[in-house]
């Protein structure tokens, strides 16, 4: 159902990142193809956010290589990532409370007409975008401060779609949302995949991962701890990879039997 091209849109090869004495990432490998949702999971402090920030150019990598469409690239600033076509939606959303929805959607890439902000065109495109993504908010001309948490999340995701990126990174998009809004965001993720975007989805919620992801990449203590096909892998396997039970037949069996016993 999902066409996956041979060359990954983004590939990380042996990426490492240090913060002073802390080795945040060690030799991390990751591949994302167009039209594919890769869930990035791991415990708190596993390095998910750091990995995302290296891809987004917030923290340049120390060692290793980043390949974009098969060619090595260097991403040292957020601008580099944006120029490549990487859009990131952070957990803390990074919206300006005092600016209205249109202003936030176009922040940093305002449309201009004769050197002046083209508010009309921005508003028209904002409405169009929100409509195609089936996002409902009270008005595109109210400040973000007046929106609910879920509405802010959808605005943040919509914002990432404006530059028509090849890769969208979503950092815990459903963490603060209710049932209805979570479903809306997951729908949105599927819509992104249908439109041929590559998606990296960070989530703690296994139900969400199972629902939308094609592959699950597990990080543990800053290292790869397995990449799984979602369809053929059980939730327990993923969880044991996250929590650190080493991935072999014995531990898998132990986990399974324990699970059965406790039931």
């Amino acid at each position: 159902m999902v066409h996956v091209s041979a060359t990954p849109v983004l590939a990380l090869r042996g990426v490492s990142k240090r913060f002073g004495a802390v080795q945040a990432l060690t030799d991390v490998e990751l591949e994302v193809h167009a039209g594919e949702v890769v869930a990035l999971v791991g415990d708190n402090g596993a390095g998910k956010s750091t990995l995302v920030k290296t891809i987004a150019g917030v923290h340049p990598i120390d060692e290793g290589a980043i390949e974009w469409g098969g060619k090595p690239v260097s991403i040292s600033r957020p601008h580099d990532a944006q120029a490549l076509g990487i859009a990131t939606v952070y957990q803390d959303l990074a919206l300006c409370d005092n600016i209205d929805v249109v202003g936030n959607l176009f922040l940093g890439r305002e449309l201009k007409r004769f050197g002046v902000l083209d508010e009309v065109e921005m508003e028209r495109r904002a409405r169009e975008l929100l409509t195609t993504l089936s996002i409902r908010i009270p008005s595109v001309r109210i400040p973000i401060a007046s929106l609910s948490g879920g509405q802010r999340q959808t605005v943040a995701i919509a914002r990432s779609m404006l530059g028509d990126p090849k890769l969208v990174i979503l950092d815990e998009p459903t963490a603060a949302l209710g049932v209805e809004q979570t479903a809306q965001v997951l729908d949105l993720v599927e819509r992104l995949r249908e439109r041929g975007h590559a998606v990296i989805l960070i989530s703690h919620n296994m139900a969400d991962v199972k629902a939308v992801a094609d592959k699950v990449a597990v990080l543990r203590l800053g290292r790869n701890n397995g990449v799984f096909e979602v369809k053929t892998t059980s939730q327990e396997d993923i969880i044991s990879a996250i929590t650190g039970a080493t991935d072999n037949a014995v531990t898998r069996r132990a986990a399974r039997t324990n699970g059965e016993v406790s039931k």
Partner: peptide, 8 residues
């Protein structure tokens, strides 16, 4: 922070 991430 939002401004920085927007490339300002």
């Amino acid at each position: 922070e939002a401004s920085r991430r927007a490339g300002i």
